[in-house]
Amino acid sequence: MSVWDGLTGQADAVAALRAAAEAPEGSGSMTHSWLITGPPGSGRSNVALAFAAALVGDGPDDDRALMQVTARTHPDVAVLSTQRVIITIDEIRSLVTGSHYAPSVGRHRVVIVEDADRMTERTSNLLLKALEEPPERTVWILCAPSEADLIPTIRSRVRSVRLRVPDVASVADLIVARTGVDRTLAVDAARQAQSHIGMAQRLATSAEARDRRRRTLETVLAVRSVGDAVVAAADLLAVADEDAKAITQEKDAEERDAALRSLGVEPGGTVPPALRGQLRGLEEDQKRRATRSLRDGLDRILVDVMSLYRDLLLLGLGAPVEPVNASMQADLDRALASVPPASALEVLDAVALARDRIAANVAALLALEALMVTIARAVR
């Protein structure tokens, strides 16, 4: 099995990274800093991990290196996956310090920063210094949605590799191979997730996730008045909260149990006062993760709403394109009578504005209410 297996729809990116990893030293194909860009769900982190495994392993077929890198246990690979809304300067400072150590078992020391677009300017400038004077055998791999999400001085010091949005069939094939679900279900999930691999897998394997998504779209289609808009906004926020809890609660419980075991506390036992500070730190991290998970859940809801009005726009214009929400064709046909193309465009603009507002820390309920009111006014 090659470290590059399982990277769906990214043949060009894999070819470039593979050539760099396998090139002789001094050939010029390899550089000390890389930027992997692509839309959410395109597999940026997976590509970065595969590249890291190729750099620290004994070749593209080194399964052991890939397993260690994927499990975050390889001694020469550091991965920053922040649970916060932003990456803190202390997190980057720790990575920079570690980047100066020589590799212990591999050819390179690799440092991966997922969601590098979450760095503030001050944090970015600290990383910039590390990229300007890198240790000889250290390789930095940054991941972000686009080059524009990083400051220009960092962009000028990295080699960019752009990922594509994989097609629905490729994502469905990957989900079937990973989970064994029915292919029809996998295709529907991949289409509804708009080829977002992680979300598609979740929709294919979780009936609750599929039900929450359908409830979201039905709630939006039912909005006819300002009163409906206010109620719908509260309902969507509740759905996002429910979805976020479904993702984080199980992981939180596992982390707490593991922490208690490492501290020598029996399940259900009382935590000694001297150890409560360590658990408090874990709980604070979990709260930050819950905040980010809720924000991500809200954005997923807005992307789903955007897909709904994109379908109505294209159907209203008679475009020969299969709807993202083909499983709701009857609902779409009924909605066409009250949502002409001009109204669909107006709602799409409002959804984009709501996403920007939530990203800028506007109260989520207010942003959703404004969006729902726009939808109520746009419906004929």
Rank of each mutant, 00 (worst) to 15 (best):
M67R: 14
A204H: 12
G41M: 09
V339K: 04
A53W: 03
Q68G: 00
L236E: 01
H196G: 04
Q68V: 00
S225F: 03
G98H: 04
E22I: 07
I151K: 06
L128T: 01
Q286E: 07
T219N: 12
P152V: 03
I197P: 04
A169R: 11
T153R: 13
R93C: 05
S262Y: 07
D117T: 05
G59M: 08
A53V: 04
K245Q: 14
R183A: 01
V56A: 03
E255V: 04
I151M: 13
G38F: 02
S338F: 10
G318F: 13
E147I: 08
K251A: 09
L366F: 11
E242K: 10
A244L: 00
S81E: 15
L275W: 00
A354G: 05
V303S: 15
L80V: 07
D333S: 14
A50T: 00
R215M: 09
Q201V: 11
A290I: 04
P24R: 02
R191N: 05
A190Q: 09
G6K: 07
A370Y: 07
S170C: 00
S293M: 10
V3C: 13
P340F: 05
R107K: 12
G264S: 02
S99F: 04
L282V: 04
Q192K: 07
R214G: 01
Y101F: 08
A172D: 11
S27Y: 14
A21P: 15
P60H: 00
I197S: 00
R178T: 03
G57F: 02
T31N: 14
V56L: 08
A370T: 14
A274W: 04
W140K: 03
D356T: 09
E91V: 06
V220S: 01
L313T: 05
E121C: 00
W140L: 00
R280C: 08
L275V: 01
A246G: 15
R109E: 09
L371Y: 08
L203I: 03
L366M: 12
D311V: 06
A78C: 11
K251T: 11
N325I: 01
